[in-house]
Nucleic acid binder design. Structure first.
Lengths: 187, 187
DNA sequence: TCAAATAGAGTGATTAGTCAATCAATTGTG
DNA sequence: CACAATTGATTGACTAATCACTCTATTTGA
């Protein structure tokens, strides 16, 4: 038996990214997912609930992947680099997911995500940064500011990689170089 | 005589930022702007046209402000710093405009803005970066990548400043420090 | 006098969400 | 094992409301 909820999620992701929240009616999502209109509302009470649930799901998947894949290195720098690389590789493998997260982040729907959920996503990287600041390996600055800087760096680099569409080897080189830039910036 | 078009722009900005594109009907924009429904469509043929026109207008204002305010310094670093500071001060003074631009940037409406318009906005900063790369004062890397990095840095810092809501003096210190970080990263 | 600006009621299409009716799977019972 | 009983998933026609946009009449200003 196919998982209809998952089907709805996948279809919604694709449509929301290509046509926006407004531009995709729930009826179309249901149709393209091959389920009945009512089924969608069996799983999600409102369209808004679907939009938010999809965001939380994608973030969870990203965080989970990071937790499973990123290696704890012998030095702080290597640990951070591993997280950096894993995040970017995940994003490159999940372009739609990444676009959706960005779109959602700067939309008013973002206000509907509880602080706990947000904190849950950041815990992993926050731990590393905090250690770095405390041990004076990283510049002393507000945690949130550093989080914001690192986050923006990752997002910006990813946007470039998606738009530039260069070969894999070049991509890896750029990602690696970018990490060095980031590291120089943080220390 | 009050400028109704400007009134519509201001109201639309406020409502779109607080409720999103979908969440704000044109009828509400007209009502809150104190004009008739038909007047809105006298100035903008469609809702989409209003959304895009508002974006272009805000970007123009931002670019114009930068062109008027940023100083050409004796060194490349000082020129760049001036642009950096001016951008951030403008953003702090126009929080809604900044949020709107972000929201628009990562929405499918962005695809409706012509390449020329986008290039027009970037010309100013691009000139400085290009000079820097050519004169080997900045690291050698793709122009677009550097643009993306600088842009993200500005956006990320601004998001932090808006959320942290610290006193003016602290803000200025953080902005100044952040520029040093950015400079370290680029060289 | 005329064109542009403004008004606001009206319209047709769309859409989020409902609901009553099946269907499939599981569980309880003699 | 047979066979109700129960539960939750699924359907798709339906509706009430909304919304983008139109139309026509009126006003304004040069």
């Amino acid at each position: 038996m196919i998982d209809k909820q998952e089907l709805i999620f996948e279809t919604a992701l694709r449509l929301f990214v290509s046509s926006g929240f407004h531009g995709t009616p729930t009826s179309l999502i249901a149709k393209e997912a091959g389920v009945a209109n009512g089924t969608l509302f069996h799983y999600f009470a409102t369209k808004e609930e679907l939009i938010v649930a999809l965001y939380v799901k994608l973030k969870r998947e990203m965080t989970l992947h990071l937790a499973e894949t990123a290696q704890e290195g012998p030095t702080l720098k290597e640990t951070l680099k591993s997280q950096f690389l894993c995040s970017l590789f995940w994003a490159l493998d999940h372009k739609d997911a990444f676009k959706y997260i960005e779109q959602f982040n700067s939309s008013p729907y973002m206000a509907m995500v509880s602080a706990e959920i947000i904190a849950e996503q950041l815990a992993c990287i926050l731990g590393v940064l905090r250690t770095g600041i405390e041990s004076h390996q990283l510049s002393k600055m507000p945690e949130d500011l550093m989080l914001s800087m690192v986050g923006s760096h990752v997002y910006g680099l990813n946007r470039y990689l998606i738009s530039a569409n260069c070969p894999k080897a070049t991509q890896h080189q750029i990602i690696s170089d970018s990490f060095e830039m980031l590291w120089k910036m943080l220390t």
